[in-house]
Every structure is written in C-alpha cells, then in structure tokens.
Amino acid sequence: METETHPFFRAPARGLAWCLVWCLVWCLPALAKERVVVVSDSWMPYNGTPGSSREGYAVEILRAVFERRGFTVEYRELPWKRAVRDVRSGRADILIGATRDELPDFIFPKTSLGRSELCFFSMDGSWRFTGRESLTGVVTGFVQGHSYPRWFLDDIRRHPERFHALHGDDAFVRMLAMLAEGRVQVIPGSRAVVDFYAQQAGLEDRVFLAGCSLEDDHELFFALSPADMPRSRLLAGILDRGVDTLRNTGHLNHLLIKYGLKDWIKVR
C-alpha cells in the first residue's frame, strides 16, 4: 500500500527555499533586537559618558563583542550602588569594573579588565602613604559604595570625622575637585583612573602618587546578573570568546591606544 506523504515533504525545492527565507525574515529581527543593558558609574578610562566619542574602553569592548553578534548594547551611567542593585535584580545585565570578592553572587567571565591597585594621591608632594596609620592626620575622600579593603572601611566606621563621603554619577570627578580645593587632603583610587581625570582637569602636575597598598591589588571584571544564571553564563561565554578574538587580531590594542593604554596581558 502506498503511504500518503504530507504535502510539505512533496513540495519542490523552491518551496523549501521560501521556508528558509520566511525563517530569516522573522527570526533574524528577533535576534537583532536582543538587548544587553550595561551600567556603571563614570570611571574612566573604563567607562565614561554614554553616547560620547570616548565612552571608555570597557564599553567599547562590549560593543565590539556583542554588536557583531547581533545584540544591541545599551550603556547607562548610574551611581555605583544603584548600578549594582539594578544588575543584581536583573533590570540590567552587566556591571563594569567589579571584583570577584565584592560581588560573590554575580557571574564573572574568565576574562578580566586588567588589574586595579589601591593607591593614594595628594596635592602635598611630601606626604606618603605607608599604611593605615599614615591616614591619621589627614581628611580622606572616598566614593560611597565603591569597593575598599576591610581595614579602610573599619577606619571610616571608627573615625568618620577623618573621612568625607561622596556619591552620585560623577562622585570621583567631584572628589578630585575637592582634593584640588583642599577640602580633602588625600583620595584613594586606581592609578589609571586618577591619572585620567587629573589630566582632564589639568592637574597632572599637581596631583602626586603618594603610595599604594600592595596587598589590595585586584583584577577587575565585567560582573553579570545573578537574576538569570543561564543567560548570564551565555553572555559571559560570548565575552570570553569575543575578547580573545579582539586580542588575537590586534583590535584590542588598537582600541586601548585611544585611551593611552596597553594590553594588560602579553600575547605569546
């Protein structure tokens, strides 16, 4: 007995071709609309003003990796504490510039954004940071919600009169301005970040590196939302493969030169 075949399987080759065209028409726009929301407070050269010609090298890495995969990258500048809260809750996907220790519940790719050491800066070229005791006689500014070592946070709690907290989108820029005005005598920060903002403010010859805490040297990462683990793991994998490609093709170095930086990993 002859078996009846469904008309779809008896269609000519051009029928199958039209089916593939239909899939491309309807499926690709859906993929193209896939959005990755990225947040952080302003922290150049990692990330700066959204939509500007210099959004920061971390934002440019994300755009280079995800946009060629059909994603739309939406970068928002938020105060740090709100940025962390939005990524943790799933309202945003990726946080720029976190450490594994400060956000252990987040998903992290294998690829880092480089290293960030805790250094101290002053307008007084004779002042030196030699340990926590050296902060006793000065007023130190800090950004509320940023990751600092436990000893530093303990000092803030025990001696709040010796510290001045700032918060908001441009907290670091305002902290540097307070240093220049003499309202605080010392500020902590990453060398790359302070160097960038000091140069922007024309203070590069007046702000002195006073020393670094060698035990507080950490790798920085993109931190992905714990609210949707499968999606975040997928995005982390795309990031790792994408940054490897940027590095191996030389595109990453080209991108970093724009910010006066070099790759933090030597390619063999």
Rank of each mutant, 00 (worst) to 15 (best):
I265W: 07
G56H: 09
L135K: 08
S42H: 09
E219Y: 14
I238C: 10
L209N: 12
G211W: 04
A64N: 05
R115H: 08
L235S: 13
I156H: 11
V39K: 05
Q185R: 03
F108L: 12
S53G: 11
D228V: 11
A180M: 05
W43P: 04
T111F: 05
D155A: 15
G48W: 14
P45E: 03
V138N: 03
A98W: 08
R247V: 09
R76F: 10
V184M: 06
S225V: 14
V38A: 02
Y46N: 02
I96T: 01
T72L: 10
E133V: 03
T249H: 04
N253I: 01
F142D: 03
A32T: 02
D86L: 14
R115C: 05
D169E: 11
Q199W: 06
R150C: 00
A165T: 03
Q185N: 03
A177S: 11
D86T: 15
V173R: 01
M178F: 10
F108Q: 13
G131M: 10
C119K: 08
W264F: 07
Y57M: 00
V193N: 00
V65D: 09
V25S: 02
A210E: 05
A58K: 08
A17K: 08
G141A: 08
A165R: 11
L256F: 06
R157D: 15
E117F: 01
S213I: 00
D244Q: 13
V193T: 11
L28I: 13
G125C: 00
G242V: 07
R14K: 13
L62A: 13
E133G: 00
A83D: 00
S53K: 14
E2S: 13
H146W: 11
I61P: 00
K81L: 13
D154N: 15
L31I: 01
